[in-house]
């Protein structure tokens, strides 16, 4: 038996969410006295893939193939399911990123495995196999019991630690063994946001609402984001009015995020907005209305005009950055 983890890479590197997933799988393997097998698919150097042993992988399977250099759901799912069978995996762990979300259900269907996504706990195996997940867009938690022999868990990024847990390197490098029929979608073009912190991966997010009056005032969001190495986000009406792109829209019908710090400027805190951000560890609210509902969900607040307080905050953040540069 083993615990298998999908070690997702971006252009040959592992993101923090991948290391979290490997560390999670290693912890589950330890608690169930089995081994953790990390599977990397794409064009990752063996020396790079070896790093996964630092986070607790007992074995690393490095599948290398030029055609898999960027993520493609179909063949990736097939490879992962095949290796799961070879390694007799009882649990398959993926991070709940876009790639993770598209691969997890496919793997589950191939292996007839029960699947839970948005997992925020380690499994409790004292009586059955229980995990906790978020439901209702973060408004509640549910405890789910999975009853199939094989289980797929898609864990929420920025929830588990990446504690180092050194294991002896044991790496197997293989080809994919796929044929052309396994590639049933064709990638035409990939555009990545460059020079900006990706919202879903950011530890700090600065977000603006309708209170900022117009797109010309977004320098207040962007300058603070720059000083704090943060990603930028917005409320739904802001993207509906095209002040900002839809890719920044957070909330129940937008992106759900879980950063360490969510900094909301001129956002009222409607229930649909809160649903997408309330799992953030620390929430700061800047709003001129003391009755704004967002203050009830906040850890730090300033009742004030954003146009007056933000310049002071940006100044202080720049100073902090300079001190630590």
């Amino acid at each position: 038996m083993s615990i298998l983890v999908f070690a997702e890479n971006t252009d040959g590197n592992f993101k923090k969410s991948t290391l979290e997933a490997v560390a999670y799988a290693a912890e589950v393997a330890k608690n169930t006295s089995t081994t953790c097998v990390a599977v990397s698919i794409g064009n990752v150097d063996d020396t790079k893939a070896e790093e996964l042993s630092k986070y607790g992988a007992d074995k690393i399977v490095n599948v290398k193939n030029d055609k898999l250099a960027t993520f493609i759901a179909e063949p990736f799912a097939k490879i992962l399911a095949n290796i799961s069978s070879q390694e007799n995996a009882s649990i398959i762990v993926v991070s709940n990123t876009y790639s993770g979300k598209s691969i997890a259900p496919k793997v589950a269907a191939k292996l007839k495995a029960g699947i839970v996504s948005g997992v925020i706990s380690y499994p409790d195996t004292t009586n059955g196999f229980k995990v906790r997940r978020t439901v209702f867009s973060g408004k509640a938690f549910a405890d789910v019991d999975i009853t199939t022999p094989i289980k797929v868990l898609a864990i929420t990024p920025n929830t588990f630690t990446t504690l180092e847990n050194n294991k002896t390197v044991n790496l197997v490098s293989t080809d994919s063994g796929l044929n052309d029929a396994d590639f049933n979608t064709t990638s035409i073009e990939v555009t990545r946001v460059t020079g900006k912190i990706v919202l879903t991966e950011a530890e700090v997010v600065i977000s603006g609402g309708r209170g900022l009056k117009g797109p010309e005032n977004w320098h207040l969001v962007e300058h603070l984001a720059e000083a704090l190495n943060a990603a930028t986000a917005c409320s739904k009406p802001v993207s509906d009015m095209d002040w900002r792109s839809h890719s920044e829209h957070v909330g129940q019908t937008g992106i759900t995020i879980k950063p360490n710090l969510y900094f909301a400027i001129g956002i009222s805190g409607a229930i649909q907005h809160l649903a997408g951000v309330s799992s953030s560890k620390v929430i700061v609210v800047i709003n001129k209305d003391p009755e704004a509902p967002f203050f009830k969900a906040a850890d730090y607040g300033i009742v004030g005009d954003a146009f007056e307080v933000m310049p002071k905050i940006i100044e202080a953040a720049k100073k902090l950055k300079a001190q630590h540069a």
Partner: peptide
């Protein structure tokens, strides 16, 4: 949407 960007793709 993909992690950190967008992808244009096609399928039969």
């Amino acid at each position: 949407d993909i992690d950190g960007g967008r992808e244009k793709l096609s399928a039969k």
